[in-house]
Amino acid sequence: MRILILCTENSCRSQMAHGFLKSFDPTLEVYSAGTKASGMLNPGAVEVMKEAGVDISGHTSDSVDKYIGQTWDYVITVCGGANESCPAFTGKVKHRLHIGFDDPSDAAGSPEFIHSEYIRVRDEIKARFHELYVTKLKDHE
């Protein structure tokens, strides 16, 4: 099963969703990309994922252009920006979903508050993508 997770910068939310899906089932072909890829991972996302036992430090931040024209079982957007500017895929996309999350990199305040926002969003992503995995992806080849 081939899954592409899209966000704007491909540095935070899409990377966390990518990491969690692979942790649920290493046999899934999971990729993530951005409509305006930053080219780097958000350090806060890497840190809170490591705290959750998932290492995403080896991921790359890639442009969606790399994946246009390919065949996908699921294309999932995780932020409003990507949902609004999601490109038309010229390949076959069986299912297109939008599961939106707040951007923790927009959080302002004390370092403790900002860290807590990364944790909150990480845990929301884990819960929503685990539900998706159990209801639609697991054993649904």
Rank of each mutant, 00 (worst) to 15 (best):
P104R: 03
K50P: 03
T27C: 08
S116W: 04
S110L: 10
V75Q: 00
C79V: 06
L132W: 05
Y67M: 09
L28C: 05
Q70N: 12
I56P: 02
L137A: 02
L41A: 06
P43W: 06
T27G: 06
V48C: 06
F20G: 01
Q70P: 03
D25C: 08
H18T: 01
L97M: 14
D65C: 09
N10T: 05
P87L: 05
S61I: 07
E51C: 02
G91S: 04
A52C: 12
C12T: 06
F89V: 02
N83I: 00
R122C: 11
F89P: 08
G58A: 11
I99T: 10
D102Q: 11
F129H: 05
T135Y: 12
I119F: 06
S14K: 05
P26W: 02
G109M: 11
G39T: 07
K22T: 10
A45H: 06
A88C: 13
D123G: 07
D106E: 15
K126S: 12
D62K: 13
L28H: 00
S63T: 10
D55N: 11
R96S: 15
T60Y: 11
Y74L: 08
E29H: 13
S14A: 01
G34Y: 05
L97A: 06
F20M: 04
R13L: 10
M16H: 01
G81T: 13
A127N: 13
Y31F: 15
H95D: 12
E124I: 04
L41P: 01
S23P: 06
I3R: 03
E47Q: 15
Y118C: 01
I56E: 00
F20Y: 15
C86P: 04
H18E: 13
A127T: 13
H95V: 14
I3P: 05
M16R: 04
Y31I: 02
P26C: 03
E117I: 10
D25R: 08
V78Q: 02
D25L: 08
A82Y: 05
G80E: 14
T27A: 13
G81K: 11
K138P: 12
G91Q: 09
G44L: 08
Y67A: 05
G109Q: 11
Y67F: 15
I76V: 12
M40Q: 14
R122M: 11
E131R: 13
T77D: 07
T71H: 14
N42V: 09
D139W: 04
L132N: 00
G91T: 03
A107F: 03
C79P: 10
G81V: 01
R122N: 11
E131S: 13
I125T: 03
G44M: 04
I114K: 09
L132Q: 03
V121P: 07
L28G: 00
T77C: 08
K66R: 15
H95Y: 12
G39R: 02
N10P: 11
H115R: 14
V48W: 01
D102R: 10
K50S: 12
V54R: 04
A107L: 07
S61D: 05
S116D: 14
W72I: 07
I99K: 11
D62R: 14
R2P: 07
A52V: 00
S11D: 09
H140R: 14
K94N: 15
D25F: 08
I68K: 14
H115C: 04
A17I: 07
L132G: 02
D65T: 12
I68S: 10
V78P: 03
E47D: 15
R2W: 08
H115W: 07
K36M: 15
